[in-house]
Amino acid sequence: MNFNIIFTRSIRLLLLPFALLYGLVIAMRNWLYDKKVLRSATFNFPLICVGNLSVGGTGKSPMVEYLVELLQSRFKVATLSRGYKRKTKGYGLANETTTALEIGDEPMQFHLKFPQVAVAVGEERLVAIPQLLHDRPGTEVIILDDAFQHRAISAGLNILLTDYNNLFYNDWFLPTGDLRDERRSYKRAHIIVVTKCPATLGTDEKNKIVKQIKLQEQQHLFFTAIQYGQPYHIITKQPIGITAQQEVLLVCGIANPQPLKDYLTAQVASFTELSYSDHHIFTIDDLKEMRKKYGQLQGINTFILTTEKDAVRLLKFSEALRDLPLYVLPVKHQFLFGEGAQFNQLLHDFVAHSPAAEV
């Protein structure tokens, strides 16, 4: 364990009094909702919530994309996100001229990948849902992105994600840990997905996690691994293969890049990382730094690699990127233990049997 990790953990441990105070506030808020002092609104309409109990990357965006791909052939799907770090306020619906600065990087990613799907943003989801249904009256299901902890709305189906490397039952409140909600809040979920598992996860390890989570009646638990796709050029969409002879410059501004770095370690000869904070808004100076770092690579088989989230924030430099070997690495959830079909059926059944879908 290196010095930086030890130092960070020591600092977070010293912040334990603040974590206790934060946990007390969250517990009181949940108690008020549980006792119905504060009310959760319900809609006679299929709402699917995707969220987690912690900060950091648990794979929410790939899960939203998985749900869109799964449902869009049978139902008219919409997504609703907060639009984190966007430069606008209030409700907004993506259109042909929308940029990531207007709706945020993750909603922009959904919009680019699924242009036929209604992609909306709004901090107050209670207000945004009726506006979205007014703008797109044919909508049959709305996927709420990162909304599990926002109890002002009670979704018909809650999907809770937890990272295999940081399972919620071993975590603690911010800032000592990464929890932004109580551990016991997992009981509100209908489906729990343990994400970022090793593809070789065995049955014994699976059963240990099942035992620790202590599933409630009618809860379903699934396990997924990260599945990386074939990189494609950010502008031309031309694909490229990854080989063991390549040297890569990784441009990355996501919450948890470790799985991606582990993947590159196993796949290419070497890589250099140009790291940014999560949701970083790229500037022209960043682009110059990227070109400089790329020029310093020594190999003859080199290219730049970035994530889909980062790519949507780089597209504003599209003309400058056309001649740069900058490729985007797609990522998906891969269900383990052959349980993907069961997950898919649960989702289809929920939407098909919801009152609005039966009309």
Rank of each mutant, 00 (worst) to 15 (best):
E123V: 13
T98K: 07
E102P: 09
I129G: 00
L70P: 08
I129S: 05
V68E: 05
L70F: 06
G56M: 03
G92Q: 15
P62A: 06
G92H: 15
K35L: 01
V55W: 12
E124V: 12
E106F: 04
A78T: 14
T79M: 13
E96W: 10
V77I: 03
K85W: 06
V119Y: 07
V64C: 10
K113D: 15
T88Q: 11
L101V: 03
L47A: 09
S61I: 01
R39P: 01
V77Y: 00
T98E: 02
A78P: 09
T42D: 02
C49Q: 05
V119K: 10
L67Y: 04
R74W: 06
S81M: 02
Q131D: 09
A41Q: 13
Q109A: 11
V77R: 06
K36Q: 12
T79W: 10
A100V: 06
R74S: 13
L67V: 14
E106Q: 10
G92I: 10
G59C: 03
G56K: 00
K113I: 01
G104L: 04
R125Y: 01
I129T: 02
A41T: 13
Q72W: 10
L38N: 11
H111T: 10
S40H: 00
K35N: 09
A128M: 00
E124T: 08
C49K: 00
V64N: 05
G51V: 06
L93R: 11
G51D: 02
V55R: 05
L93Y: 09
G122A: 12
V50W: 01
K60R: 01
T79E: 12
F43Y: 07
L101D: 15
P62R: 08
L53M: 10
S81K: 06
M108C: 08
F43V: 04
